[in-house]
């Protein structure tokens, strides 16, 4: 194939510079780096994924006359066996996740100041929050599974007046119940599971950022943009939780 190499083709290559993505574009319209643009658009698409899940759940729920009351279902508390605290655990989880998000924002701000220690400190707190959230969720899942809830079976049934009764209790009290929608478990485990997966990925990302911060990688690079990008993801996880919280626990 050597015959193809005209002089003019080669000569055009003599001074070919290395690809560099920050070159040229004097015209970045938003003054946002391409890395952050990418993260933003990824999050936009992920918002569509979550909406797909949530509206599927919503449509199914709307086509039912009855749905278990979250105040009854989500009343368990770790270390307080047998005590019913409606929405107790989930309020704690929400607080933890929002605080964790705040910590990460603080890390981002410290990053703008090139304050290595500050970034590491706040990131560490953020990670702690994420892990605590996952812990709570694990407890809640195992609690529900222990009660007999599965993705395809719902132990919470409708009592005679539309109240929510756990099957075991109904049997004990010989209350006639009609079965609750089996999709309760499916959508709950499916969607909180998918959210939990996002949280886990976020925690891993934050840990990577923490290690690199401690190693001084970003300090040497001259900016903490990576923390900012991971931070965006972490806030998005928080954002999704706000809606999961609304549609599964509050409404």
């Amino acid at each position: 194939m050597a015959e193809l190499l005209d002089e003019n083709v080669i000569s055009e290559h003599i001074t070919l510079p290395a690809p560099n993505n920050n070159e040229g574009g004097e015209d970045t319209p938003f003054k946002v780096s391409y890395g952050k643009t990418m993260m933003w658009f990824f999050l936009l698409s992920d918002a569509f994924t979550f909406t797909g899940f949530l509206i599927a759940y919503g449509a199914i729920r709307m086509s039912k006359t009855w749905w278990p009351d979250p105040n009854v279902v989500f009343a368990g508390m770790p270390f307080l066996h047998g005590v019913n605290v409606p929405l107790g655990l989930v309020s704690i989880m929400t607080t933890i996740l929002i605080l964790s998000s705040v910590f990460v924002v603080r890390a981002v701000i410290e990053g703008h100041r090139m304050n290595q220690k500050g970034v590491a400190f706040w990131l560490f707190l953020g990670i702690l929050g994420g892990v605590a959230f996952l812990g709570c969720q694990a407890w809640e899942w195992s609690h529900l599974i222990h009660d007999g809830m599965t993705p395809f079976y719902n132990v919470y049934h409708a009592g005679p007046e539309g109240e929510t009764i756990k099957l075991a209790l109904a049997e004990k009290a010989k209350t006639p119940v009609s079965p609750g929608p089996p999709m309760f478990g499916g959508s709950f485990f499916g969607i909180t599971g998918f959210h939990g997966l996002h949280v886990s990925i976020g925690v891993v990302m934050n840990i990577v950022a923490l290690i690199k911060t401690l190693n001084g990688t970003y300090q040497r690079r001259g900016h903490y943009e990576m923390v900012e990008k991971f931070g965006l993801y972490w806030h998005f996880v928080d954002l999704v939780w706000v809606f999961v919280f609304l549609f599964f626990y509050l409404i």
């Binding site: 040229g24 004097e26 780096s33 391409y34 643009t37 658009f41 990824f42």
Partner: peptide, 19 residues
């Protein structure tokens, strides 16, 4: 998704001078 994110950020951010 990977491809789409890439195309969008490329078009938004990497245009040459005057483009």
């Amino acid at each position: 998704l990977l491809a789409g994110i890439n195309y969008i950020s490329t078009v938004l951010n990497l245009r040459t001078k005057g483009m």
